[in-house]
Design a protein around this nucleic acid. Structure first.
Lengths: 113, 113
DNA sequence: TGGCATTACCTAGACGATCTAGGTAATGGC
DNA sequence: GCCATTACCTAGATCGTCTAGGTAATGCCA
């Protein structure tokens, strides 16, 4: 009974953009590497599925927060390299601030005595 | 340009259930009061719209995590009182743990040097 | 008496985002 | 020759929030 068929990562909703932007703020990268970075950095606590990743990257590009260019990965393979734009950096700051407010609020309620 | 027409609280996705369960763990309450409590507890950082609140309560009831009963509010008005079930308490514990993992992960990425 | 804010609930449809589950293609180890 | 890995792409299902409407009762105030 306990296992309800719920979306495995509903919480990711709205936070993924900020995560991607943050990773790209460390320097240009390609989608696959962004996902691997997030997973590794969180000890697999956050899994980024490709069906969420690529649509998110197109979304960010469409909004002018990242720019894409074909190039090669560290392993010498064909890869689309994403780079944070100036607007993207502004957006990142804002999303970080929003996240801080939100998570503080949730914690206030969830961890109240 | 900066203002994109984004859903005001996409982050709430997946966290609302936990918030409601937590508020109800303090004792039975009605929907309207739950929303007011969350808003007041977070200094209006978290706004719970009624169009999210009531569907969420039905969802929780359908899953057996809360039980509803008609009664009266503190102001003597007709109100539907929700009470946490045993299954709801278990679910709350699990959702709090999930939230902790998730928010820790996001913070690791967003607040990394 | 009338008007209005507040309390309290309800709901249809729009919208947005993740996930499932498939696919392509090239590389390199065994 | 086979298979895991790297790397990208996408349609459709699914789920949850929000918009924007609605009902109804109470109590204040002019």
């Amino acid at each position: 009974m306990a296992g309800s068929p719920k979306s495995p990562n509903a919480l990711l909703h709205g936070a993924l953009d900020a995560l991607i932007l943050k990773v790209l703020s460390r320097g240009p990268s390609h989608g696959y590497a962004v996902a691997r970075f997030i997973e590794e950095a969180t000890g697999d606590a956050l899994l980024v599925e490709e069906g969420s990743l690529y649509p998110a990257l197109y979304r960010l590009e469409r909004r002018g927060w990242v720019e894409a260019e074909w190039g090669t990965s560290e392993l010498g393979r064909r890869a689309k390299l994403y780079r944070l734009t100036a607007a993207g950096r502004t957006q990142l700051d804002q999303e970080v601030a929003t996240w801080r407010q939100f998570s503080t609020g949730v914690s206030k309620v969830l961890f109240a005595s």
